[in-house]
Simulated scan of single mutants.
Amino acid sequence: MQNADQQAYDRGTTIFSPDGRLYQVEYAREAVKQGSPVVGVRGEDSVVLASHVPRRSPLVNPGSVEKLFAVDDHVAIGSAGHAADTRRLVDLARRSAQDEHVRYGEAASVDALTTSVADHLQEYTQTGGARPYGTALLVGGYDDGPQLFEIDPSGATREWRADAVGHGAGDAIERFEDEYAPPLTERDALSLALLGLDTAVEDLSVDDVEVATVTADGYEVVADDRLEAAFDAETE
């Protein structure tokens, strides 16, 4: 049961507790931990995003459940947490990308797009009457080279070589720390991403996996036959 001090400070996003905590942001992070995981691995010439998309019912159309999103030709987002919150942030990222094309006639950098989304999340940690977004994002893209960023519900960003968000993310990151050994080809990055996802999810099935890559040639969803071959190799 919450103590009296916590109850006094967890009702608003704009109030710090005496020990410097924003409880609503921490609750948003807990919501992310309940979501099915997404992992990202940065290789020498690519970024691989892999997501677990559980089939909650055989009546659900698999194509209607999305966790990986193309933002621009060279940027993609993977998410864990509340799907509706993710949709709002993906729309924001896509508008930011299009604004850059319209205003300057060129693609926005991965760093700039990440920052624009993160700034929006940060506003919701200091705005009365609003709650933080209950989702965390992995932003993978290719500028002069591959890049992989994480955006936390607080609006904080970090750049990673390999990362995971959602349920089991800690286990996946530990696996990455043990297994990540550059340089990684696109095939190596795909194999490592599936290994991390298999670590995060018990009894992972290839039917519940969605994978996309971003390279100098752009965003691409990994074809089923290639995914099945890579999945079988990593889960034997």
Rank of each mutant, 00 (worst) to 15 (best):
D5F: 12
T125R: 00
A108F: 00
G168W: 08
Q147D: 12
G145V: 07
V32D: 12
D72V: 00
L184H: 04
E174D: 14
V39L: 11
V222L: 13
Q7V: 00
L121W: 03
L137P: 00
D171F: 09
A76I: 12
L197N: 10
A50V: 11
A212V: 15
R226E: 15
A169E: 11
P37L: 04
D171W: 06
R11Q: 12
Y104Q: 10
D152P: 10
L204W: 13
S205A: 15
E26Q: 08
L68W: 00
D10L: 07
L194T: 04
H101T: 11
D119L: 12
S17H: 03
V39F: 11
P153R: 05
A200H: 07
E210T: 02
G35N: 11
A118L: 01
V38R: 04
Q6A: 15
D208F: 07
L138H: 03
L113E: 09
D91S: 14
M1R: 13
L138T: 03
V201W: 00
A223C: 01
A84D: 14
A162C: 02
E236H: 00
A107W: 05
L68Q: 00
T114P: 02
P183V: 10
E100Q: 15
L138W: 03
I77E: 09
W160M: 02
R175W: 09
R21N: 09
V71D: 11
T185E: 08
R87C: 05
